[in-house]
């Protein structure tokens, strides 16, 4: 007996909460990529990102990314949690941000801007 033969186990839940989590994660990854590129291009920014000096700018690059991710998640979650959003558009947006995030953390790319 499969699930298809039953009534849904519970009521419909809007897709907004999932969309917020997905887009916020992609924003966080993109910001880490952006900080990686920025620190390579600007010595001032690299120095400012040395939040924990023994770890160098990496602490700030990832710190900014994580804080941005959490803020974006909180904001998007509050906006979308009770409603359905255009999930395909969110997927496309998240895919673009993730792709950029992956590209910007790839050494051959960010080192080209050094």
């Amino acid at each position: 007996m499969t699930l298809r033969e039953h009534e849904p186990q519970s009521g419909a839940l809007p897709n907004g909460a999932a969309a917020a989590a997905i887009l916020a994660a992609a924003i966080g990854c993109f910001i880490i990529g952006l900080m990686t590129l920025g620190a390579e291009m600007s010595e001032g920014l690299a120095n400012a990102l040395k939040w924990y000096p023994p770890a160098g700018p990496l602490s700030g690059k990832t710190g900014v990314g994580v804080i941005t991710w959490l803020i974006a998640w909180a904001v998007l979650h509050n906006l979308w949690k009770d409603r359905d959003v255009d999930f395909r558009a969110v997927r496309i947006g998240a895919a673009i941000l993730l792709l950029l995030g992956f590209l910007l953390t790839f050494p051959l790319i960010f080192q080209a801007f050094a």
Partner: peptide, 14 residues
């Protein structure tokens, strides 16, 4: 190391 140290942080977020 330059790739590893940055990309690793994507894993916990995702």
């Amino acid at each position: 190391m330059e790739w590893k140290e940055h990309i690793a942080w994507f894993a916990p977020i995702l």
